[in-house]
Simulated assay, not measured.
Amino acid sequence: MTYIEINGSPATADTLRLPALTSYGHFTAMQIRDGRVRGLDLHLDQLRSATRELFDGDLDEERVRADVRHALDAVDARDASLRVYVYWPEDDERATLMVTVRPPQTMPVGPKSVMSVPFVRELPHIKHLGGFGQNHYLTAAHRAGHDEALLTDSQGVVAEGAITNIAFWDGESVIWPDAPSLRGITMALLEPRLPSTRRHVTLADLSSYRSAFLTNSQGFAPVRRIDEVEYTVDEELMGRVSAAYEAVVWDTI
């Protein structure tokens, strides 16, 4: 079950009309544990910057935090998978905030199989709504027996996963693709805590890397293959990733 509040009140048929009929907006997704979240400042910065770019308006940080706390308290949830959506109807003086609360989630266990697809998101630096293309290709990947789709441009340049960021390991550095993409919160938390670098990555380069892993709001997971390229799960690397992730301080909302 998903619990929904809009502007701090339980959703109604009337207030749900806006999110039901528009795809112009943005959101952030977070995992709540004991009323806390990793990277709260990063989530708030993501919401503020996207609101400024899409709507030319400011978003009140304390209002976001208050709405999140209210929704969690309404269902007595200390642990949850939570999203904050931002819309801004014309002629309204402030943004409309929708908070959804679901049971907590973690990245499904096991190394992932990934299928490359010829698609890149529009305005990829924004976690925006209306992602028909990425949903289409993610569905196609699932139907073909894969766990995730890898978005690439017409030249085979790797950007990101459909719902993840991807990183590669060359034995010394974690390589994050240097291409237009969303800098997801988990990626933003791990990048400075690991020996990281940005690099132009193409499909032709995939076999040159020793291993790879995916990140998103649910956590991280190793990659076992991309298309026909097989990877060995580097347990030492994944231990370092896990240690870096676990070292992140949880922020009280």
Score class of each variant (00 low, 15 high):
Arg33Gln: 13
Glu236Lys: 13
Arg38Asp: 01
Phe220His: 14
Tyr24His: 15
Ala188Lys: 08
Ile4Asp: 02
Glu122Gln: 11
Arg193Ile: 03
Ser242Thr: 13
Arg193Asp: 03
Leu59Arg: 06
Ser217Cys: 12
Ser154Trp: 12
Ser181Leu: 07
Arg33Met: 06
Val157Arg: 13
His70Pro: 00
Pro118Asn: 15
Ala159Thr: 12
Ser113Asn: 09
His146Asn: 10
Phe132Cys: 01
His128Asn: 08
Ala77Thr: 07
Tyr209Phe: 15
Ile32Leu: 13
Phe132Gly: 00
Pro111Asp: 07
Asp60Ile: 07
Gln105Asn: 09
Ile253Gly: 04
Asp73Gln: 14
Leu54Met: 14
Asp73Leu: 05
Arg65Lys: 15
Tyr3Lys: 01
Pro19Thr: 04
Ala13Lys: 09
Val201Asn: 01
Gly219Leu: 08
Leu150Gln: 02
Gly239Ile: 09
Gln134Arg: 12
Arg65Asn: 05
Thr22Arg: 10
Leu18Lys: 02
Val64Cys: 12
Gly8Asp: 07
Pro222Leu: 03
Arg199Cys: 08
Asn216His: 06
Ile175Met: 01
Tyr137Thr: 10
Phe168Glu: 01
Ala50Lys: 01
Ser81Asn: 12
Val229Ile: 10
Thr100Ser: 14
Thr28His: 03
Met187Asn: 04
Pro103Met: 08
Gln218Thr: 13
Leu214Lys: 04
Ser181Lys: 10
Gly239Ala: 10
Phe119Arg: 09
Pro111Asn: 05
